[in-house]
């Protein structure tokens, strides 16, 4: 039985474990090859790494996110929207710390009558100091790398 909307909305504000990512040069190269993009200058990586980092640094897997959103057999996961704010370009070899939480959760009915639930995941990236310590509050602004807001859609009961 599909989860109630009220129960689904209890996810709003739920803090995810977050994580960290260091973009290795070979991964950057593979990404640029896959996207047929020109290599970046001075160790800067493709901005698509914000999207990649948001998936890898939620602190839970996509499968675990689906479970959190009460996905059932026949529900289809779709990527609905993605907003990236870049405070500074991501770079190879730099470690970024990620905090993550669930944002807005909502539901609507599609034209074909299906229930479409949306779950927003907000990931914020900041530079980790080379010492491994998190930066202090005074350096918080300089350390900000970017924010990614991804909206995952769950089309309920698409197959029987």
């Amino acid at each position: 039985m599909t989860v109630s909307i009220d129960k689904l909305q209890t996810l709003e504000g739920h803090v995810l474990p977050g994580g960290r990512i260091t973009i290795e040069p070979h991964e950057s190269f593979i990404g640029e090859e896959a996207l047929r993009a020109e290599p970046g200058a001075h160790g800067g990586v493709h901005p698509a790494w914000f999207v990649i980092a948001s998936l890898r640094c939620m602190g839970i897997s996509v499968d675990e996110l689906c479970a959190l959103a009460f996905q059932e057999e026949g529900d289809v996961l779709l990527f609905g929207n993605c907003r990236v704010e870049q405070h500074q370009p991501l770079r190879e070899g730099v470690t970024y710390l990620a905090s993550a939480h669930i944002g807005e959760v909502s539901s609507r009915t599609t034209r074909d009558g299906a229930r479409l639930d949306s779950v927003e995941v907000i990931v914020r990236l900041r530079v980790q100091e080379p010492s491994g310590r998190d930066v202090g509050a005074s350096a918080e602004v300089e350390a900000r790398a970017g924010e990614i807001v991804s909206t995952y859609l769950f089309k309920r009961g698409s197959t029987t």
Binding site: P47, A48, P89
Partner: peptide
């Protein structure tokens, strides 16, 4: 989305010029 990002940053001059994309 990355293809769109590519077009934007190519036109803007560099990846550092990107502020946001939705």
């Amino acid at each position: 989305m990355a293809y769109v990002m590519d077009a934007v940053v190519s036109w803007a001059g560099s990846r550092a010029h990107l502020r946001s994309i939705d």
